[in-house]
Design a protein around this nucleic acid. Structure first.
Length: 731
DNA sequence: TTAGGGTTAG
C-alpha cells in the first residue's frame, strides 16, 4: 500500500511543468548532480556552481551538499567548512546538521556546529538537544554533556522525554551510571527506547546483572521488548556465560515471533559460541543467510576454544570475505590450540592477502612464537613489530618479554623490559616468571623487590612467579617468607597454583612432611597441580608409599593423566620393583592410556626441524645417526652409561638402551652439533620432561663438545654448560 | 519524519 500511495503522490508533481525559471532549473539540476556525485572533487565542482548561480541561500541544497560530503569523504572537514560558510543559518538547518554530525564517524564536530550557531546568534530549540547530547555521549564528554544538560534545564526542556532519554545515554557513556538511573527513575513515562538506553548503559558499564534485572523490570512494567533491546540482553548473557537465560530469551523470541534481523541472529550465534554450545550455534549459523563476518568469526572462536580447530578452519575457509578480525580469530585459534606453526603460517598468508595486522593480531602471533620457542622466528616477529609501529604498546612489550623468555633468551627479554617507557604489573611479572623458568632466583627476587620499591603492587600471578623461582632454586626460607607475606601483607588468598609451588618447594628440599601438612591445611580440595608436585617430589626422593598415595589421588581426579602413570612407574623402577612397573605398564595398555609421544624441535636459520623418537624421516638421517654413534662413544669415555629407568615399553634391557639413545632430544642435539657453528648455543624445545638419561647425556655433551646447550622442557629451562645444568639436577 | 536505542566478532 505504502509504495502505491507514494507513486500516486509523486505522479502529479512529475506532471507539473518545469518552471521557466533559471533558479529553479539550476536548483533541480544541481540537486540531482549532488545525488550522483561519487568523488570529493566532483562535489567541490558542484559547490562552486552553487556559489556561481547564487543558490547558496538554498537550505535544501546546502544540506544536501553537507550530507553528500559525509558519504564521499573520510574526513568531515569539508562538510563542516560548507556549513561554516552559511551565514546565520536557520535553526532548522542547524538541527539537521547537528543530527548528521552526531551520527557520523566524527561526532566531535557536532560541537563545532554548535559553536558556529552561538557565534552567529542562532537559537537552539528542543530538537537541538538530543543530537548535542548524543554527540557528547559518543565522545564521552561529561563536561560538555553537563553544560548542555544545564542549558536544557534552563530552557525548560529537561522534562522532554527525548531530551531525558538522551541524557541517560550521556551519563551512562561517561561512566556515571548512577546518575543515569536517577534520571531514569524520575521519568514519568518510559517506552521501549528509554528502557533500551538504560539497559544498554548497564551493558556498556559491564554491569550485566543490572542489565538483566532492568530487563525484567521492563517486562513487569508491561513494555514489550523489541529486537534491539533483546540483542543487548542476549549480549549480556554472552558476556556472563549465562547460557540458561540466553536460551530463555531465544525461546521468547521464537514464542513471540519477534522478527529477527542479521544483527540479532549474529548476537544469538555469538552467545551460544561464547557459552560453548556449538551445536546450537551451528544450527542457527546454518540457517543464517547470507553469512556475515560477525557470525562467522564467532563460530571460529567458539570452535577454537573447544579445541575443535578443524571445524574452525572449515568455517574460516568457507568465508567469501574475510577481514582483520576474522584472520586474527583464526590465528588466535591456532595459537591457543597448540598449533603455533600454523598460526605463523596464517599470519604470513594474511600479509600476502594485503591486510594490515593490528595489536590484537600481534599478541596472538607473539603468543604463537612463545609456544614454539624458536628464537629466530621470535626475532623476526620483533623486527616486524618495530617496523609496524607496535613497539610502544605496553601489552605488546609484555608479550615480547614472555616470548623471549620462553624462547630461551633472558637477555633479549631484559632488553625489551629496559627499553619500555612505561611498565605495569604484568611487565614485572613477566620478567620474574621468565627468571623463574630459567632457575635464576636471584634476579627474580631482585626484580620482585625492585617492583615493590617502585610502588607497583604485585598480584596473585606475580606471586606464582616468585614462588616458582624459589622452588626451582631451592630457596625454602625465602619461599616460606614470601608465601606468608602474600597472605598477610597483600591479602591475597593462595590458589591451587600457589600451593603447588609450595609443595614443590618443600618437596625439592626433602621436607615431604611439611608438604603433606600444607596440603592437609588447604581450605579447598587439592587439584592435579598439587598432587602432581607431591608425586614429582616422591620420584626424586624415592618415596614409594607417599608417591603411590599422591598418584592415587591424582588419578582419582584425572584417570587418563599419562604423566601420573609415568611418574609412578619411574618411582617403582628406581626402587627396582619391576613387578609394579609391569603392573602400571599393563594397566596403561589395558586402559588405552598412551604416554604422549615425545618430540624435540631445533631451529636452524629460521627453519624448524622436529624430531620424534626413533625418527628416521629427516633428510640428513644417516649423518645424524652416525653423529649419535660418535657422541655416544665419546661420552662413554667420560663415564656415560645409558639409564633405562624411564623406558616404559616392554623390551629386553639391551633394546631399552637403544630406545633411550633414540630419544628425540638426543637426535636434535646431534643435528645441532652437526650444523651449528662451534661458538653458537644449541637450543632445543621438548614437549615432555627431559628424562634422566637425556639430562646426564646432555650435561656430559656440553663438557665434551664445549657447547652451551639450552633445553626447554614441559616445565622449565635447563642451561647446560661445562657439564653442569642450571636446574642442579632437580626438575 | 526536525529529536531518543543495537559497535553483535578477534
Amino acid at each position: 500500500m505504502a509504495s502505491i500511495n507514494q507513486t500516486l503522490l509523486a505522479f502529479p508533481s512529475r506532471q507539473t511543468p518545469i518552471p521557466n525559471n533559471n533558479h529553479h532549473h539550476h536548483h533541480h539540476h544541481l540537486f540531482s548532480a549532488l545525488s550522483s556525485a561519487t568523488t570529493l572533487p566532483q562535489l567541490k565542482q558542484i559547490h562552486a556552481q552553487i556559489l556561481r548561480t547564487g543558490l547558496d541561500r538554498s537550505t535544501s541544497l546546502l544540506l544536501k551538499l553537507i550530507i553528500s560530503s559525509f558519504s564521499l569523504s573520510t574526513s568531515l572537514d569539508y562538510a563542516l567548512s560548507v556549513f561554516n560558510q552559511i551565514s546565520e543559518p536557520e535553526t532548522r538547518l542547524c538541527n539537521q546538521a547537528l543530527r548528521e554530525f552526531s551520527r557520523s564517524v566524527e561526532p566531535e564536530k557536532t560541537l563545532l556546529v554548535y559553536e558556529k550557531m552561538r557565534r552567529d546568534g542562532v537559537g537552539v530549540d528542543r530538537f537541538s538537544f538530543p543530537s548535542l547530547l548524543k554527540a557528547s555521549a559518543r565522545i564521552s564528554a561529561l563536561k560538555e554533556g553537563m553544560e548542555i544538560h544545564g542549558l536544557a534545564s534552563k530552557m525548560g526542556f529537561d522534562l522532554d522525554p527525548f531530551v531525558q532519554t538522551a541524557l541517560i545515554g550521556v551519563y551512562a557513556a561517561c561512566g556515571r551510571i548512577f546518575e543515569s538511573r536517577q534520571l531514569f527513575d524520575k521519568m514519568l513515562q518510559r517506552d521501549v527506547v528509554t528502557w533500551s538506553v538504560m539497559i544498554d548503559g548497564y551493558y556498556q558499564s559491564e554491569l550485566y546483572e543490572d542489565a538483566l534485572l532492568t530487563f525484567e523490570e521492563m517486562r513487569s512494567s508491561g513494555v514489550e521488548p523489541d529486537r534491539m533491546v533483546l540483542a543487548t540482553i542476549v549480549s549480556a548473557c554472552s558476556r556472563t556465560g549465562n547460557l540458561n537465560t540466553g536460551k530463555a530469551i531465544h525461546d521468547y523470541i521464537i514464542e513471540k515471533n519477534v522478527a529477527m534481523d542479521p544483527h540479532l541472529e549474529s548476537t544469538l550465534i555469538s552467545m551460544y559460541s561464547n557459552c560453548g554450545s556449538m551445536d546450537l550455534a551451528q544450527h542457527l549459523f546454518d540457517k543464517l543467510r547470507p553469512k556475515n563476518l560477525v557470525a562467522s568469526t564467532s563460530m571460529i572462536t567458539g570452535y577454537s576454544k573447544l579445541g575443535k580447530i578443524e571445524a574452525a578452519r572449515r568455517i574460516f575457509y568457507q568465508m567469501d570475505e574475510k577481514d582483520l578480525v576474522s584472520w586474527s580469530a583464526m590465528i588466535a585459534g591456532y595459537a591457543e590450540s597448540d598449533w603455533p606453526q600454523e598460526a605463523l603460517k596464517l599470519f604470513k598468508e594474511m600479509q600476502v592477502s594485503g591486510l594490515k595486522p593490528d595489536q590484537v593480531t600481534m599478541l596472538s602471533v607473539i603468543s604463537a612464537c612463545s609456544q614454539l620457542g624458536a628464537l629466530d622466528q621470535a626475532k623476526w616477529v620483533h623486527i616486524f613489530i618495530k617496523n609496524h609501529g607496535f613497539a610502544d604498546v605496553v601489552s605488546v612489550n609484555n608479550a615480547l618479554i614472555d616470548m623471549y623468555a620462553k624462547c630461551g633468551s633472558l637477555e633479549e627479554a631484559r632488553r625489551v623490559f629496559d627499553k619500555m617507557p612505561r611498565r605495569n604489573v604484568i611487565s614485572w611479572t613477566s620478567m620474574i616468571t621468565g627468571f623463574a623458568m630459567h632457575g635464576d632466583a636471584d634476579n627474580a627476587l631482585w626484580f620482585f623487590d625492585q617492583m615493590k620499591a617502585e610502588k607497583i603492587e604485585p598480584n596473585a600471578v606475580t606471586f606464582v612467579g616468585v614462588l616458582y623461582a624459589c622452588s626451582h632454586a631451592g630457596l625454602v626460607d625465602d619461599g616460606r617468607r614470601i608465601f606468608s607475606s602474600m597472605m598477610n601483607d597483600y591479602k591475597i588468598a593462595p590458589k591451587q597454583e600457589h600451593y603447588g609451588c609450595m609443595v614443590d618447594l618443600f618437596g625439592r628440599a626433602n621436607l615431604l612432611r611439611e608438604a603433606v601438612e600444607l596440603i592437609e591445611s588447604m581450605p579447598f580440595p587439592p587439584n592435579v597441580i598439587v598432587w602432581g608436585a607431591l608425586l614429582s617430589a616422591c620420584r626424586v626422593h624415592s618415596e614409594v608409599e607417599l608417591g603411590e598415595f599422591a598418584a592415587k589421588r591424582l588419578l582419582e581426579l584425572d584417570p587418563d593423566h599419562d604423566g601420573a602413570h609415568v611418574l609412578l612407574s619411574n618411582i617403582y623402577a628406581k626402587a627396582r620393583r619391576w613387578g609394579d612397573v609391569g603392573e602400571v605398564r599393563k594397566f596403561m595398555k589395558d586402559q588405552g592410556i598412551a604416554k604422549e609421544r615425545g618430540y624435540s624441535r631445533i631451529e636452524l636459520n629460521g627453519v624448524i626441524h622436529e624430531f620424534l623418537m626413533f625418527d628416521r624421516t629427516h633428510k640428513q638421517v644417516d649423518e645424524i645417526y652416525e653423529k649419535l654413534d660418535e657422541v655416544v662413544s665419546k661420552l662413554k669415555l667420560v663415564g656415560y652409561a645409558p639409564n633405562t629407568g624411564s623406558v616404559l615399553v616392554d623390551l629386553e634391557e639391551e633394546e631399552k638402551k637403544e630406545v633411550v639413545l633414540w630419544h628425540s632430544e638426543k637426535l636434535a642435539l646431534c643435528y645441532g652439533l652437526l650444523n651449528l657453528g662451534k661458538g653458537s648455543c644449541i637450543r632445543i624445545v621438548k614437549n615432555l620432561r627431559v628424562c634422566e638419561d637425556c639430562h646426564t647425556f646432555i650435561k656430559l655433551a656440553s663438557k665434551v663438545f664445549e657447547r652451551e646447550i639450552v633445553v626447554r622442557d614441559r616445565s622449565r629451562f635447563h642451561h647446560y654448560k661445562d657439564g653442569i645444568c642450571s636446574c642442579k639436577d632437580y626438575w
